[in-house]
């Protein structure tokens, strides 16, 4: 299990993460990322991490629990 983290100060609303995995990432009305879940199973880790790394602002990352 890994924990998904977001730094809202860095988020610029590019929304690449939402396009890559919209069951995990959403966006609020101000254009800031909303994490729909933060606990990520190992089996899903690569997909969620690829979406996180599509962030141009480096605002998303996974940490091991």
């Amino acid at each position: 299990m890994a924990i998904l983290k977001a730094n809202l100060e860095l988020c610029q609303g590019y929304a690449n993460c939402v396009v890559a995995a919209d069951d995990v990432y959403d966006m609020d009305d101000d254009g800031l990322v909303v994490l729909l879940k933060t606990r990520v199973d190992e089996s899903d880790r690569q997909r969620v991490e690829t979406a996180a790394k599509s962030c141009p602002a480096n605002a998303l990352w996974l940490e091991d629990e």
Binding site: G13, A15, V19, M27, D29
Partner: peptide
């Protein structure tokens, strides 16, 4: 940004 997501 929200409209951007819908459009993409």
């Amino acid at each position: 940004p929200k409209a951007s997501v819908q459009l993409r």
